[in-house]
């Protein structure tokens, strides 16, 4: 009647006996494993958050040489109407002078070069850069001194990347859909 603690029921074929213990254990592990995805996924953006992921903007609200800041996905979005001088400055920069080389033409839509749309979040640590400040006529991040040019590209300071350009498309001459 008394067994040592190590003998877990000396009954039946040992292979079959082990199999049933392993199966029960595996089922328990499986049950726990299936509980985890919902518990993790609930922290991902909810359906209503995702539904707000795109926005439309009327470009006629921006005057030449100015920028309008709108909120998009909880972050500032810079919509800048660039002057011909600013566009030229942006286009004339040699790629070799850039920390994160990218052509200005890759950052705007052809024929609509005056409109630059950027996520207004410094690529260093996420502060909001100041409009029209810094050494390159674009933006300057007050947190750790990153300078961006008139195409929003990083020119000086600790930021590693250019200001991000979101996905956007022109719905009409003056209307863009962002995201």
């Amino acid at each position: 009647m008394s067994e040592p603690a190590t003998d877990h029921g000396g009954h039946g074929d040992p292979n079959r006996r082990d199999f049933i213990y392993i199966a029960a254990g595996a089922a328990a592990v499986g049950a726990v494993a299936m509980v985890i995805p919902p518990l993790v996924d609930q922290m991902n953006p909810a359906a209503d958050t995702l539904a707000l992921a795109s926005t439309e903007f009327d470009l006629s609200k921006v005057q030449e040489g100015m920028q309008v800041v709108i909120k998009w996905r909880g972050k500032p979005l810079f919509v800048r109407y660039r002057t011909p001088k600013e566009i030229k400055e942006a286009q004339d920069v040699k790629l070799t002078d850039l920390k994160d080389p990218q052509l200005d033409s890759d950052r705007v839509k052809k024929g609509k070069e005056q409109f630059l749309i950027l996520v207004g979040s410094c690529t260093h640590l996420g502060c909001v850069p100041t409009f029209g400040a810094g050494d390159y006529g674009g933006w300057f991040c007050p947190c750790h001194g990153s300078h961006y040019d008139t195409s929003g590209r990083i020119r000086k300071g600790p930021a590693p990347k250019n200001l991000a350009v979101p996905d956007f498309q022109f719905l009409s001459d003056t209307k863009v859909k962002i995201g």
Binding site: P38, L39, D41, Q42, A46, A47
Partner: peptide
């Protein structure tokens, strides 16, 4: 119940 992922379940 409606929008959070698996919210109805939780």
């Amino acid at each position: 119940m409606r929008d959070v992922n698996y919210g109805w379940l939780i």
